[in-house]
Amino acid sequence: MMEFINFYLIPGLALGSIYALGAIGISMIFGILRFAHFAHGDVMTLGAYGTLTAVWVSGLHPLLALPVGIVFAVLAVLAVDKVFYKPLRELPTIYTVIASFGVALIFRSLIQLVWGSQNEVFIRGVQKPVVLFDLIRVSLLHLEAIAIIIGVAIALHYFLSRTQTGRSMRAVSDNAELARVAGLDTEKIVRATWIIGGSLAAIAGVLAGLDTNIQPNLGWNLILPMFAAAILGGIGKPMGALLGGMVIGLVEELSSYPWLTDEPLINPSYKTATAFLMMVILLIFRPQGLLKGRLF
């Protein structure tokens, strides 16, 4: 039982937090700008490298240097939106999807040019696990990730239901045409979407980098489970995406638990595939997602 909690449940929740942070942004962008942002994983990577550089310069702990990475990622997405996505906004959204594909490539090649393609780590050496009640032994990072996602969930809920910008974002996601007729400033809302999406992606990137190591494909490798999470939660439903991320993370970790025999249920090298499998099952049976999101 303790083994289950220590090696599967807590890591699953931590992984889920990373997916959730990315999926919130994907879901918001899909809801408001109406396209699947294929460069979102690479925004995470940018956030991780920005933070890494701040750590190198300042010697701070990565989570303290995180604001630098956030600013870096947000500036990058705002610039990309202005230069590459906005000119295509009047066209069918599929052109923006293609553009985001290209942006993913641009981000990754820039990262490799500036930082090289070798693996980097935030903190060297083995981290001591946190021991609770003599039974639960988990990594501090996983607890931090779970704490962050709880904080983000509360803040996001407050933002979306109580603030003018949050409500406007939900309104645009619900009915963009009417939002325009009602006089809402669409460009301002788009900007807010990128700022929130970029920030959360940077946090996710740093957490993912802390969990393993930092390399140029860090975020790209996570894009599929994040898409799956966004679909699971119902497109255009940020809180749903958060939940979806947690579910996908848990399923992924729990899929390699020896449920039936002494062997892992699913070979750990196929962990990522379980997320995809869930996405496929969902697309077949309930494409609107668990929380009845928008169906395009």
Binding site: A36, L224, T272, A273, F276, M279, L283, P287, F296
Partner: peptide, 16 residues
């Protein structure tokens, strides 16, 4: 579904 889903699914199958 909207073409974005096909994009996600096709990239998914390629990765798997």
């Amino acid at each position: 579904l909207k073409s974005d889903y096909l994009a996600m699914a096709s990239i998914g199958i390629a990765e798997i």
